[in-house]
């Protein structure tokens, strides 16, 4: 899309700022602030949204793959099914499709993690440590909190 959406969103934010300058009604100002927050997030993440999701899929995909090698029986089967589901339609890069894949892996991660937490072996411990790190990177990608002051 030309001009690129972040640039257009920047103009929209500037417009909102100008509208807000003339406002004294705190209801209206609060609503403008809400719209401005939303547009800011979209502007910031437009370019990186798909690649962040692909990074998340790769990160959790690696964890689940390692988990599937460590687990056995039904658990191994379920973890493999999650990996297979993510591999299907791998050329679909719509944001909604990528989010579904990431959620499939997150679901598998929940099962894997609950199991690993009760495992004692060094391989399981190492995988659990890496899993915590993967979750931290996932959280950092989604960390949009603005401190109050």
């Amino acid at each position: 899309m030309r001009p690129n959406p972040p640039l257009v969103l920047q103009a929209a934010l500037k417009t909102l700022e100008e509208v807000a300058l003339g406002q004294t009604d705190e209801q209206v100002l609060a609503r403008l602030h809400g719209v401005s927050t939303l547009l800011s997030i979209l502007q910031r993440e437009w370019d990186t949204c798909a690649s962040n999701l692909l990074d998340g899929i790769a990160r959790y995909g690696d964890i689940v793959r390692r988990g599937s090698l460590l687990a056995d029986g039904d658990r191994r089967e379920r973890l493999r099914r999650a990996l297979d589901a993510v591999a299907d339609g791998s050329s679909d890069f719509r944001i909604s499709a990528l989010e579904i894949k990431l959620d499939q892996l997150r679901g598998a991660v929940i099962e894997l993690q609950a199991w690993l937490e009760d495992e004692e072996g060094p391989t399981a411990r190492a995988l659990l440590a890496d899993l915590w790190q993967a979750e931290h990177e996932d959280a950092l990608t989604e960390d949009r909190n603005t401190p109050l002051w």
Binding site: G34, I41, Q133, E135, H136, A139, D143, R144, N145
Partner: peptide, 27 residues
């Protein structure tokens, strides 16, 4: 309400980041 729409975007990831820090599991 816009606030409802943006709350998840703004806060869930941050909350999980803080939870991981409080759990003390990060290297």
């Amino acid at each position: 309400e816009l606030m409802f729409g943006t709350m998840g975007w703004l806060l869930i990831g941050s909350q999980e980041k803080w939870a991981l820090e409080d759990l003390g599991v990060l290297r």
